[in-house]
């Protein structure tokens, strides 16, 4: 593949941005950032943390990419996370469905199923009733946490179950388990979208729904599928999060995470108006968002300033992605444009 073709790939820019951010973090931290130690055959370090915590975002971003690809959106993912966390933890803690005996596998399965049901509701609103996606999913955004509260009986459900903890804290081949879960999700979605015609159909729907329909694409069915998938990925993220904090906190689990999810996809380069999407790009976008969060904590930014710091970095990332801005920068400094651009990062 020629250099030009490579740079035109949708994944190229986000990937470079990710490398630059990680690199800068490394320099500022004097190398600590890159340090990876091995304890008991497990890898530890900032990069591993990013991988572990970023997996949640990545899984979420994969589902969100599909919804955004159709020109829709799903802002109920945070609430779906809360619901799935509440269901999984309540079952494991034998607060509901005692007949299952706290079986972790069944708990996870039912939580995912709940995510699918939530997604189906969204799909029904968007595909069948043709409600605008943001409004349609806003219903679950607001009602979802209430449902989660009902399931958890209004309490924070804390659990003691090593098998469940390992979903977030466990290791496989020395690497965190969530990274593998994310990897499986990514591969499954890549197969779904690129080995079948599903990806192209989603893009066609996103670009021009009317044309897509007349070309024989089952727009309604595809929208159902996408919102259900989005619900399932959100549920999975919710399970990982609840396993991480060893319990279900219905008020805070996945709070405002829909915005991070959309941000990850946007940084990855998928237009929010729909059309061309790239799952890999969105995953890179998710890692960028996570790296920013991790870095801010790592550098000891005062908690009250973390959001501001994050916003500033996001603005810079967006500016780098903005073509008019970069053209302007380049035209101002015809020869030193590259150097300048990097200074802007710093």
């Amino acid at each position: 593949m020629s250099m030009k073709k490579l740079t035109q790939k949708m994944e190229f820019k986000p990937f470079v941005v990710l490398l630059v951010i990680i690199f800068l973090c490394g320099i500022i931290s004097g190398g600590d950032f890159f340090k990876i130690t091995i304890v008991d055959g497990h890898f530890y370090g900032r990069l591993i943390d990013i991988l572990r915590n970023g997996s949640r975002y990545a899984i979420l971003a994969v589902g969100m990419t599909m919804a955004l690809g159709t020109g829709g959106t799903d802002i109920s993912v945070g609430s779906i996370m809360a619901i799935s966390g509440a269901i999984a933890c309540s079952i494991v803690d034998e607060r509901i469905l005692q007949a299952l005996g706290g079986n972790v596998f069944l708990a996870v399965l039912l939580a995912l199923l709940a995510g699918a049901v939530c997604g189906a509701w969204n799909g029904f609103m968007v595909a069948k009733l043709k409600v605008q996606p943001m409004v349609a999913t806003m219903i679950l955004l607001t009602a979802g946490r209430g449902i989660a509260q009902l399931i958890a009986d209004g309490k924070i459900v804390t659990i003691t179950n090593d098998a469940y903890y390992s979903i977030s804290g466990g290791y496989f081949l020395g690497l965190p388990v969530p990274a593998f879960i994310a990897l499986i999700v990514i591969v499954l979605f890549l197969i779904l979208t690129r080995s079948t015609a599903f990806g192209m159909q989603v893009e066609a729907i996103g670009v021009n729904q009317a044309s897509a329909r007349l070309a024989g694409i089952k727009v309604e069915r595809n929208l159902w599928i996408i919102y259900i998938l989005c619900g399932i990925t959100a549920a999975l993220a919710g399970i990982i999060e609840s396993a991480g904090i060893k319990g279900a906190d219905c008020n805070n689990c996945g709070l405002m995470i829909e915005l991070d999810g959309i941000l990850a996809v946007a940084i990855g380069g998928t237009a929010l108006s729909g059309g061309r999407f790239s799952i890999i790009s969105s995953v890179i976008g998710a890692l960028i968002v996570q790296t920013i969060s991790t870095t801010i904590y790592a550098f000891g930014v005062a908690p009250e300033l973390t959001r501001v710091a994050k916003a500033v970095i996001v603005i810079i990332v967006c500016l780098i992605q903005s073509k008019p801005f970069m053209d302007r920068v380049k035209s101002l400094m015809p020869k030193t444009a590259k150097v300048e651009a990097q200074e802007v990062h710093a």
């Binding site: 015609a197 192209m200 159909q201 893009e203 066609a204 670009v207 021009n208 009317a210 044309s211 897509a212 007349l214 070309a215 024989g216 694409i217 059309g275 061309r276």
Partner: peptide
């Protein structure tokens, strides 16, 4: 409005109905 899928390639626009 109802014919072309503007942002997709000619190849995709030509094969889209056959794919369906």
């Amino acid at each position: 409005k109802e014919g072309i899928v503007g942002d997709l390639t000619i190849r995709e626009n030509i094969t889209i109905a056959l794919q369906s």
